[in-house]
Nucleic acid binder design. Structure first.
Lengths: 203, 203
DNA sequence: GTCTATATGGCGATAGAC
DNA sequence: GTCTATCGCCATATAGAC
């Protein structure tokens, strides 16, 4: 098959694999599940991707790197610090409303195999010190309360991501398992959260 | 074997199963893994527990119900509303420092099989309306800002649970994979969070 | 490239000896 | 109660026809 069509098939497979892995997890998903989702013979998976592990690592890398560029470019921009945080909330809400299961997937897979994260950080050149430093620099603007920058980041990320990660729980405990209602709640939460978080750190 | 010793074996098995299921997840854990962890022959598992599914459901129920009694009794107590929130932070930090992987486990398993949550709510008689009402009553004390009580609860739970659920990520991104450092950070976060959360809702 | 057929191994579950 | 032996199933991966 030509390179273009071959590329199409690889895309079709990786997209199917992404849906299946995210729904069932690495251990819970079978190659047959993925073949069915892609509408192809299972043997073709081994033709395009040598084995399940390779396919999973590709999907995992693709999913995790969604979270980085927007965050990094916003933090490095020349925006006002409050606008940076508002921007990050917007970027992640857009991403998570589109892909609500990404956090559960990433967190669970890293927990099951911590080497995944280490590989990823080496691949993407992620540097913890650089991230901490960027945040710490922002603390010095004097506009916000003096806080451990790591606590500030954990707060921000937790307030954004937790409702998605724990969505099944929240849905069950607070919304009678009515998923439409939960999504409406989460969409409304976007502006609420900007106000709440900014006020909680303003000096 | 006598009932007492039989009970001992069941306890030994469920504790081993809990460790294995929490580490590998339901799909990733094999009965052989659990037998090895308990130091017994694999066949004995089927003697004491008919099958993997039953054993898993037992472990899942045991793990999830850890989170309820402390929360419910604190919310129903006669404490000041701020002390209730401080109490909940303490209860959950104690629980999560002891069992840091519980949140990842619960969230992932419910995501993989949402019927788990429904079964659980029926078993435990959990009522979403009752939970919402308890919180709403607290909002009327006038001490705290007027907020959607669901947002308030999501904030509180997210601020508490997220650092544990996302610990592998946070460790990698902010702490050079130094797990000791992360645990120290989380222990220090307890008092910080009480202050931060209370101030963020105070009228 | 895509399929059928199959090799190989692991897992869950049970029968039967002790 | 605890073990060995075994059955049946499903999953991964590959060989080979087309």
């Amino acid at each position: 098959m030509s390179n273009e069509l071959s590329g199409e098939m690889e895309k079709r497979i990786t997209e199917a694999a992404t849906r299946v892995f995210i729904k069932k997890g690495s251990a819970g998903a079978s190659m047959q599940d993925i073949a069915d989702e892609a509408g192809i013979n299972r043997t073709l998976l081994n033709y395009y991707f040598r084995n399940k592990e390779k396919l999973f690592e590709l999907v995992f890398a693709k999913v995790t790197e969604c979270f980085l560029p927007g965050f990094i470019s916003t933090m490095r921009s020349s925006m006002d610090i409050f606008d940076k945080f508002r921007g990050i909330i917007d970027i992640y809400f857009d991403l998570l409303l589109e892909n609500p299961l990404f956090p559960i997937f990433i967190i669970h897979e890293i927990s099951a195999d911590p080497s995944l994260l280490i590989k990823l950080m080496k691949q993407k050149g992620l540097n913890p010190d650089q991230i901490s430093q960027t945040i710490q620099d922002e603390m010095k603007s004097g506009k916000i309360k003096d806080t451990d920058p790591r606590n500030l980041m954990v707060n921000l990320l937790g307030l954004i991501i937790f409702p998605f990660a724990a969505r099944p729980l929240i849905e069950g405990l607070l919304f009678h398992n009515n998923s439409g209602y939960t999504m409406e709640f989460i969409e409304n939460r976007r502006e609420y959260l900007k106000e709440y978080f900014i006020e909680s750190i303003r000096k």
